[in-house]
Design a protein around this nucleic acid. Sequence first.
DNA 1: GTGAAAATGAGGTGCGTACCTCAAAAATGC
DNA 2: GCATTTTTGAGGTACGCACCTCATTTTCAC
Lengths: 359, 359
Amino acid sequence: MRPTVNDIAREAGVSLATVDRVLNARPGVREKTIRAVNDAIQKLGYVRDLTAANLARSRNYRMAVVLPDTESQFVQTLADALTDAGSIAAAARMDLRLHRFPAEDAHALAALLTSLPGRGYSGVALMAPETPILRDAIRALRTKGLPVVALVSDLPNTGRDHFIGIDNRAAGRTAGVLMGRFLGPAPAQVLVLGQSLLARDMIERRRGFDEVVLRDFPQLDVLPSLETHGSGQTLRQVVAERLGNAPGVRGIYAMGDGHRALTQVLDDIGLSGKLVVICHELTPHVRQALEGGEITAVITQNLGHLARSTLRVLRAKADNLPLDAGQEQIRIEIVLRENLPASPDSALSTFAEPAVTAA
Amino acid sequence: MRPTVNDIAREAGVSLATVDRVLNARPGVREKTIRAVNDAIQKLGYVRDLTAANLARSRNYRMAVVLPDTESQFVQTLADALTDAGSIAAAARMDLRLHRFPAEDAHALAALLTSLPGRGYSGVALMAPETPILRDAIRALRTKGLPVVALVSDLPNTGRDHFIGIDNRAAGRTAGVLMGRFLGPAPAQVLVLGQSLLARDMIERRRGFDEVVLRDFPQLDVLPSLETHGSGQTLRQVVAERLGNAPGVRGIYAMGDGHRALTQVLDDIGLSGKLVVICHELTPHVRQALEGGEITAVITQNLGHLARSTLRVLRAKADNLPLDAGQEQIRIEIVLRENLPASPDSALSTFAEPAVTAA
DNA sequence: GTGAAAATGAGGTGCGTACCTCAAAAATGC
DNA sequence: GCATTTTTGAGGTACGCACCTCATTTTCAC
């Protein structure tokens, strides 16, 4: 049997109340007694039973997740992953609430954030572009004791407690190597697409990409980034035009979203499957395009892990506990057709066999 | 506030005892009453508080992890990951015990497994090659109500409850594409190494590799696999000899372990960094070789995830609960120098800031 | 309608911990 | 040595649920 607080008390020759005072860092205990208790804890290998502790505290964790109201498959998939993770974490006294804000409206976002502290929240996870007004809103939240976690795109100058997502510069570098190695030694031009050249993640990806290509693949000519502003229409136009004028293009690096429009325009001009196409985020459509050979490789992050990590980090921050950096690191995953993970739809929940009850 | 069993009882107009009978599937409740209770549960959105439930059950989970006593960095790293995960899970009433068995001794392994049921275990995770005697031992365990989970290498014919690890065939395919694309269109020979051509995982990797190369990269000539029997000595010999005789070799696929010996022999004969070298498992030495450009790409699995997944699956099986297939799927990761995750050593635990107590 | 069986209610205890109060003991200042 | 402060002990309640017993009510077969 695992030792309990009672065992500690007996071993240390003190009362339960004293053990409790030591364990919960309450005042009014002599140094010497504290040491005696800690020695007993050491000796017996006591580990506080978190389930019981949280129960006794009747601590609830209401967390806000704030996402833009973009309709992109990525944000939608992320929202789903968070909802999923939240419903499971409900059994552990977690109560996750999703909030959406108008994508381009920094003031609406700030207003939303400002309204949170009064509503019983003990943490906020946020995916949003960094603006001055957002910085202030986040500072205000933290002053009120609400930890703030940045999702997907970092907010380094806001004082956020933690960032959950991949290193976009490294992701760009990875795209760079893949592009270079897949295209081979022959000279070629490469097209780069991004919805906005001002967004932090786009800038970092481009920087990482260039870094590697310049260093290791001098035979490649990377053309200036094309902005799509998140519009499929624009994307189709600029890509068609550029590909018409630059017959030497053999690779496309799509840093942002709009993959549906991209595969469509490639198909229209008869280049589908003939270029090395590297993009980000394994959405359902990208998965399909990967299977069909329209997209060569995808740099992605596991949104399930990201969602679960978000919950763990929020909780740890709310409890002011340390977190396991290794577990919370979101890896940059490379997905090819050959290592495409089984689709979440086809991966039905496995249910335990009926018979055989455990001991 | 979240609804509790009492709320359910009130809502359904029954007593607490009846709610309890329904929740825990005890007999002696009319269909109609069961439905009334379930309706109330639905209506109030009740979620059983697992922490409280487990506390009340005073359920402890003592789990055995059985690994070969090989000194390979891989097994060692795996053992460490499991120990780590176990020490964290201790707070959730988990008690993980590692056992090692002599790598080539199926009888010793069977004896070890047979001794487990008497020792208060409620689950076993096992990494071992499949033998008839092992099949019997596993059957015996399951008859006694102990769930058995296969680690890293599957044991499909033993009736194990679950397999935790990557799909080795898909891993081989992934290695195949990388090899093909990295080598480019020029004809080339490829060397394949494995410690034993009888081990299930080696066979599957080779099969997947061949599948892709034959289909998509006809310019490649994949030489017959070389067996190293886990000996660095043997590996160095056979590789040196083969590379001497086959000057057209431009790629090496190392399916098994012995990467240290491989990089060494390549260095000796002056080919270090000049071949496309693809191997498995991101051990400390492989990481170093990747950084140094001696190894081109690594197919790996995240051992931290694998370890945590093992604990979750063991627990779910012990409780006869369904598990989240998506979360438990171990992905095939591709690691290049550019997306090498930060070393676990340098990834120090992040500690929460002292001030700011949560609401 | 009667008796037996099935279903339900009422109430209690315990899991391991947190947190509280009040009294008693020990240490401290002077 | 006394008064005062600090430290410690004893005991209780609560968290949400599991599991038990025993009495009572309802249902059903005949």
